[in-house]
């Protein structure tokens, strides 16, 4: 699988897939998509990159250890439930706010952060699995 074409194109494919995965994540509330799917797409992107170019470039590219990313995601998802407790409603109740940033109304909500948390957990955990297996495979 280490063909020149594959190796050359893999970084671009990966970059595209990661961007696409974020798109899928963010549109997930109203259209098909969401954290789980987005996370899986990004994880497959990194897995492909790993197969093509080896694991070390992938580790350098994502900078953080995959499990740190997953841990951060879990923390984010758990914390996304806290504001509702401050507001006096049960844990994880959705809260919405619509601040206007530069004439554009942005819909911010706790489920958004929760979904980002889900995304990061899936990306982190599954990339971690794939990369460690690939390392095993090579070494």
């Amino acid at each position: 699988m280490n063909t020149l074409i594959f190796r050359t194109f893999a970084p671009f494919i990966t970059g595209l897939m990661v961007v696409f995965s974020i798109f899928i994540l963010l549109r997930g509330h109203n259209e098909p998509g969401g954290g789980f799917i987005g996370g899986l797409i990004a994880a497959s992107a990194f897995a492909i990159y790993g197969i093509a170019n080896g694991v070390p470039p992938v580790r350098r590219a994502i900078y953080f250890h995959p499990h740190s990313i997953a841990g951060f995601g879990l923390l984010l998802a758990a914390l996304a439930g806290i504001p509702s407790m401050v507001a006096g409603v049960p844990y994880l109740t959705a809260l919405w706010t619509y601040p206007v940033i530069g004439n554009v109304e942005v819909a911010l909500s706790t489920p958004l952060f929760f979904d980002i948390g889900v995304y990061l957990v899936v990306v982190g955990a599954i990339t971690g699995i794939a990369l460690s297996l690939e390392e095993r495979h090579r070494g």
Binding site: G28, N30, E31
Partner: peptide, 18 residues
């Protein structure tokens, strides 16, 4: 406030499960 019912169930209605 979500059009994708499946995603709304996952991140909002049944968030604790998720």
């Amino acid at each position: 406030h979500g059009g994708n019912i499946v995603n709304v169930i996952i991140v909002d209605f049944r968030g604790l499960d998720t």
